[in-house]
């Protein structure tokens, strides 16, 4: 199942990845191979199998609505590249 060059570029853009021309070609080949592999799975008749959202036997895991103290702000901001007056500061983002 061939994936086009444009699709590779689109996916890269969504993932915020900047690919060189060689990388795009490589991705095109590899992604196509992966899709081919999944195409094999598509051949299996799953019409009688309900869609599965999870393989875990767990259901209805919920907590009560009880607030608890949050983390110390200094700790929260420790990984921020830049901070200003308690805010995380980033380069301007387009609206």
């Amino acid at each position: 199942m061939a994936i086009t060059r444009e699709e590779v570029e689109h996916i890269a853009e969504l993932a915020k990845l900047y690919l060189t021309e060689e990388e795009k070609e490589k991705m095109q080949r590899q992604l196509s191979a992966i899709l081919d592999y999944f195409a094999m799975l598509q051949e299996i008749d799953t019409s009688l199998i309900p869609p599965t959202a999870t393989v875990l036997p767990l259901r209805n895991v919920m907590r009560e609505d009880t607030p608890a103290p949050s983390f110390d702000r200094d700790k929260i901001l420790a990984n921020a590249p830049q901070k200003v007056e308690g805010y995380v500061k980033v380069k301007v983002v387009l609206e």
């Binding site: 929260i76 200003v84 995380v88 500061k89 380069k91 301007v92």
Partner: peptide, 12 residues
């Protein structure tokens, strides 16, 4: 998000 001239401040 609070947008300023060339940067943005974030309150989570």
């Amino acid at each position: 998000l609070f947008h300023f001239g060339d940067y943005t401040l974030i309150d989570f």
